[in-house]
Design a protein around this nucleic acid. Structure first.
Lengths: 364, 364
DNA sequence: TTGAAAGCGCTAACAT
DNA sequence: ATGTTAGCGCTTTCAA
């Protein structure tokens, strides 16, 4: 009567232990790879596991280890955005134009695909998984905080698309482990990864100058974003340092449409420009379209350089010469930093800056 | 001595109960909104919760409720793909060309952004969250199954990019709740959502014919995918029914590059074609580029129609006329079906088919 | 309506 | 090297 090896329901440690003729603790040790277990018994346990079809219960394990092996991957677009005071009556995802607009646009930017890739590739071999969250409203940010406070995830990876995002502050205030993509607008005790924006802009400016451009303009991102300011500074300094001040600036919002509008403005003011540095690929792509509409050839008449090396860069015709941000590696590093912090919670905040590189294609 | 309201560590139900002067059970009832609790006590409990800064522990809750409120959002690209026999030595996401290639490409397709949007918008108001997973190798598929078997998520939403994906079968074999995006190649007892591909293709064909095109070709997706076959059938039947058989087929792989290559082949064979129906927007975009390179104007010389209405459609110049697939709504419906099944596990598998619509922009 | 108590399945001392 | 045991924090009968 003690030989009932096929109990009802999903098998537990207990069942495996019984089948293997050992104690729960021993089975646990084998499963978690703790040494000091007789090889013979190990083998017996493995057989029992296979026999019973045992799978460890994550909730039970989490309850005692206080780890979930899940991390929140949070995309935030907050700060100056209009906050929804009340959520839409029925947020069923049907309308792309209402409450869904933020989440809808976010993943239209190929940049995020690369972040996801980098994070997943780092996490997966480690048995960890990302939970996707958006934090565009104050309500959504609270949700992220309570999600973490409930121990639903071990920490957060935060990608902000705007400056002055309150989420990082909320996270640190709550003592929750987090790592950011991009340096926050105001200095905080929080780890982040970033790219050397100034160097990237310098690469772009030098390339434009080297190919003979002399009337160069730039399309920036939103000027309140630190990264945007740095790119602009790097560009400006390089141009000035070479005795060829840039001729104009137009501010965009990182979207293709805003890039098109910016290019129109630039062209209206300076019909004779011969080079454009855009602060991201999507805007560079928009610029290319507008230039062509105006009968300008790229790169013969006007050279265009983008930033990021997102999938938009290679998809563009002509393919974009661009400043490559090693997004996947940066995202992986974010994950690494977070996991490191989980193991030693009192470590200092670290920031890791990556060097961009110039990818020369056809547009410049 | 019983008045110690600020115990060390994160507060538990016990702490709240003590602070409110009631039992754990009562606090639990209040927090879970179970009725039959004296309003006065409810209020006291709420105050105690605020005072202690209590947040329920998800692992403990899951352990007893057997629910995690997490669902796996799985993107699969398997079947005939080369399987990695061994994972790359260090999968740190640095290289986009190695083991990272699948995950890297997937989110470059703007289609997935819409799926994520629809899923998140449905789940979020319900306190649920998606865990992102890729299942491109046999190993990765096993991981998905064991993830679910461990109770790390309540069920799976599966988006297959290829036919003959073994994952749905594995899931149903293991008795795990799952819902698919797109009808599986071989019929299974599994719920799915899909779009009426034939109707979509008909819309495209009729539009092309109505605008006067008479030498129409089509760029299909991989012909082993059921959806692709249906689109082709709908297109072919409509053309034939109107007395204008299509003039050529070129098979693509849903990427922009494959669309370009297909267009080149088509043009080589039929330099005088005046209309193209592509099975997705990315390929339609590639077709537009090639047509322009060949000196053809779109839509004046050649009209082009895409499929999906992904962000690529509006980003394209000219903006693409396309068959809109209500992806967000379909994704939300997937989530709804899954959650429904979680509440009544023995319900029959359901399939929901959505009607596509024609979005007329500039390319046709 | 409220409380007491029994687990959920697992890990980690501690004892042997 | 292995077993015993005490919880982890919560929900949920069952009594009162």
């Amino acid at each position: 009567m003690t030989d009932d090896l096929r109990p009802a329901g999903t098998p537990t440690l207990e069942d495996v232990a019984r089948a293997a003729g050992v104690s729960r603790a021993t089975v646990s040790r084998v499963i978690n790879g703790v040494r000091n277990v007789d090889p013979v018994i190990q083998e017996a346990v493995r057989r029992a596991v296979a026999l019973t079809g045992y799978a460890p219960n994550r909730a039970a394990r989490s309850l005692v280890t206080r780890r979930t092996d899940a991390i929140a991957l949070v995309v935030t677009g907050a700060g100056t955005e209009p906050e929804e005071t009340a959520p839409p009556a029925d947020a069923d995802g049907t309308e792309a134009g209402s409450g869904a607009s933020f989440t809808g646009q976010v993943f239209a930017d190929p940049f995020f695909g690369r972040v996801v890739t980098g994070v997943v590739n780092y996490l997966r071999p480690r048995g960890m998984h990302p939970v996707l969250m958006f934090a565009e409203t104050s309500r959504a940010r609270e949700d992220v905080v309570s999600f973490l406070r409930q121990g639903s995830a071990d920490g957060a990876l935060v990608v902000s698309t705007h400056a002055e995002d309150p989420l990082p502050g909320m996270l640190t205030d709550a003592g929750l482990p987090a790592v950011l993509y991009a340096r926050p607008a105001r200095a905080t005790r929080i780890s982040y990864v970033d790219v050397a924006h100034q160097d990237g802009a310098r690469l772009a400016a030098e390339h434009l100058l080297a190919r003979g451009c002399r009337r160069i303009a730039t399309i920036t991102g939103p000027l309140d974003v630190p990264a945007v300011q740095e790119r602009l500074a790097g560009f400006r300094d390089t141009m000035a340092g070479n005795g060829h001040p840039y001729i104009a600036i137009a501010e965009g919002r990182f979207t293709q449409e805003s890039g098109e509008a910016a290019m129109e403005r630039l062209l209206a003011e300076h019909p004779d420009l011969d080079g454009v540095f855009a602060a991201n690929d999507l805007m560079a792509m928009g610029a290319c379209h507008v230039l062509r509409e105006h009968g300008k050839r790229v790169p013969e008449d006007v050279a265009v350089i983008g930033f990021d090396d997102s999938s938009a860069a290679s998809a563009c015709r002509p393919p974009l010469t661009t400043v490559r941000q090693p997004v996947e590696a940066m995202a992986a590093e974010m994950a690494r930093l977070l996991i490191e912090r989980l193991s030693k919670p009192e470590g200092a905040a670290t920031s890791v800056i990556f060097e961009p590189s110039l990818v020369v294609r056809d547009s410049a």
